[in-house]
Design a protein around this nucleic acid. Structure first.
Lengths: 133, 133
DNA sequence: CGGAATCCATAACGATACTG
DNA sequence: CAGTATCGTTATGGATTCCG
């Protein structure tokens, strides 16, 4: 992590804001995060292996998400010109740093899972009181 | 942040994993993050005011996202029984802690915006080389 | 003012089939 | 094995209208 501004929320400039939001939108989706995790855990992996390590992902989304991540400079794709083909994926330094940044969110989610589920049940119970069919 | 496991990536249990992923999937979307930010910045806000502070959000998504956040215990919704109606939203302690956790991702995005854009341009340029119509 | 309800376009995704 | 291509479905989100 490089320099951090002193304010609790980093920026107010709407232009930077929009870009940051765009980046986050691309980076913070379900599959990207899961692939990020397995690559951070296992280092370099083959295409099929990544697919097996990410629970419910379809082959289409696997390809698509890996391409995006490659485009964004989060992973490097290495093609070994052999038959059958062998393609390895690993995180770049940028990808690793993103993993580190997201680590806080993962632990937050873990730490607060029950709190959230309790809140949901409570909320849903309140809703049911207002609509008893 | 409470106790953190020693490993670089927090968990390997597939069940917890799935739940965490679910929570992250809900919590890490575009609008939730933006609303989280404006509420963290401004404290308590009225419905319309939040809408104005979040750049391109539609009224539908504003309502929907705020409801979800309320259900998850991230915000509290206070209705003042006056006319015209006055409804205020503010972050709970849980919401604030999520904001703090996401701060790392925001600063990461800010710090690496240019790196990502450079990577994208480079990637796109490489692609164009392979398909010159 | 703060929504709820409806309609509609399109983007996202999964399943399937085919290829080098 | 590591994809690409196509199709059909579902989910998502904007625009609009109406209501207490």
């Amino acid at each position: 992590m490089t320099a951090v501004s002193p304010k609790p929320w980093p920026d107010a400039d709407p232009r930077v804001d929009a870009l940051v939001n765009d980046v986050i939108g691309r980076v913070a989706d379900k599959w990207t995060m899961l692939i990020l995790e397995v690559l951070a855990d296992h280092g370099e992996l083959r295409f099929t292996r990544v697919g097996k390590l990410v629970p419910g992902i379809s082959q289409k989304m696997l390809t698509q998400t890996l391409r995006q991540m490659e485009r964004d400079g989060l992973v490097v794709r290495t093609v070994h010109p052999v038959i059958p083909p062998r393609v390895e994926y690993r995180l770049t330094e940028l990808g690793l740093s993103l993993g580190a940044a997201f680590c806080g969110v993962w632990t937050w989610a873990e730490d607060n899972l029950e709190r959230i589920e309790t809140a949901r049940r409570s909320f849903d119970a309140r809703q049911d009181l207002l609509t008893p069919p």
